[in-house]
């Protein structure tokens, strides 16, 4: 799969690392993580207008953290602590990149058919199949039927 222009290979890898931390995969629920390739491609295609802003914010973030070449920074425990801090401080105190990224990754993730299936939602557009709606118990209305008129007569 081609990388979206603007992100280097290393940058995209780091972006996916971040994505997997904010929405991790779940084997128990048969859910992909947000680093899933399909989710990422959707992130790019959904984000046409905001992609430049996201890219700029990402570069700013990297710069503030010593750059993409600061390899040790993005590894293991240090990364986990760092991303945890960013998650906990969202949205007020987090870097502008995360303010942009969280809503965008949610928009990409919760359009995924595997996610819909995991939550008993039929994938695909609502039309033409539609859905069933139970009619439940109209006997509930009996308590209201006997009430006196509620409206003010203006005769």
């Amino acid at each position: 799969m081609s990388i979206k222009p603007g992100f280097s290979k290393d940058e995209e890898q780091l972006l996916k690392q971040i994505a997997a931390s904010v929405i991790p995969p779940s084997t128990e629920r048969s859910l992909p993580g947000a680093d899933d390739e399909e989710v990422f491609q959707r992130l790019y295609s959904n984000t046409t207008d905001a992609l430049n802003s996201l890219l700029n914010a990402f570069h700013e973030l990297l710069e503030s953290e010593g750059g993409i070449s600061a390899a040790s920074h993005w590894k293991a425990e240090k990364f986990n602590d760092w991303i945890s801090n960013q998650i906990e401080s969202w949205p007020a105190q987090s870097h502008v990149f995360f303010k942009l990224f969280f809503p965008l990754i949610i928009r990409a993730y919760y359009k995924d058919e595997r996610v819909h299936k995991a939550y008993n939602r039929r994938p695909g557009p609502p039309f033409p199949e539609g859905y069933e709606l139970s009619d439940e118990d109209w006997g509930l209305l009996e308590e209201v039927r006997g009430r006196p008129s509620l409206y003010k007569s203006c005769d």
Partner: peptide
Amino acid sequence: GPLTTAMIGLLTGRLPMGTNHHEAYS
């Protein structure tokens, strides 16, 4: 719908990112 639910969850602080994300969404 699924996406709007997630966005409301995010904006109201009911949908944390990270470890508890899926449990919260459910």
